[in-house]
């Protein structure tokens, strides 16, 4: 079953955010996804960011820069997003394993060019940013205050099939 995408955005305006920052290794001893929930982005090094803050608590979309999710292959990174209802990440680019893990779990890792991310991040000045994802139209609509911006993205047929089927296990089990 397809997950719910879009919603309230939080902006992590830095490149190379790694999976150790998203979920530190000391929590990898948990054997359920749910147990990871309180530790989201606990070690993120970013000025003004509070991992225990309200902004993160209500966010369901993460917006970031280049090479998001680099480092360790731990799927605990997408999982800690999933159990915090963050099913959509929008970034300039991703580390391969993280991006694959997102789609493998039926979640979205949307790539937008730097100019679009710049505009998205600037939108914060108008107030809280809400994001709608139109998978059919392959577009992202961002609203803040009275301002509305639309950006288009590409999703491969395979990634789309993973999102539609709910993930790689479902897809592979039906096919192989």
């Amino acid at each position: 079953m397809q997950k719910k995408f879009g919603g309230s955005a939080i902006f992590l305006d830095r490149s190379d955010i790694n999976t150790d920052e998203i979920i530190p290794a000391k929590y990898l001893t948990e054997v359920t996804k749910e147990a990871l929930q309180p530790y989201i982005l606990e070690d993120l090094k970013l000025d003004g960011f509070d991992p225990k803050g309200e902004k993160l608590k209500k966010a369901t979309v993460v917006v970031s820069r280049e090479n998001f999710g680099c480092g360790s292959s731990r799927e605990h990174a997408p999982w800690v997003f999933e159990v915090n209802d963050v099913h959509t990440v929008i970034a300039e680019s991703y580390a391969r394993i993280f991006r694959q893990n997102m789609f493998n779990g039926g979640m979205l890792a949307i790539e937008l060019p730097k100019a679009d991310i710049d505009q998205l991040i600037a939108l914060q000045e108008q107030g809280d940013v809400g994001i709608e994802v139109d998978l059919e139209g392959q577009s992202v609509i961002a609203k803040a205050g009275s301002e509305v911006k639309k950006f288009t993205f590409e999703i491969s047929q395979f990634d789309r099939a993973l999102v539609d089927s709910g993930g790689w296990v479902e897809f592979a089990d039906a096919r192989y």
Binding site: E75, Q100, N101, N104, F158, V169, A172, D173, Y176
Partner: peptide, 18 residues
């Protein structure tokens, strides 16, 4: 290649990876 747990799970069950 390093992979996540979902790829690993399908690898264990089906012996394939994308």
């Amino acid at each position: 290649a390093g992979v996540g747990t979902t790829d690993l799970e399908v690898g264990i069950l089906k012996g394939v990876c994308a």
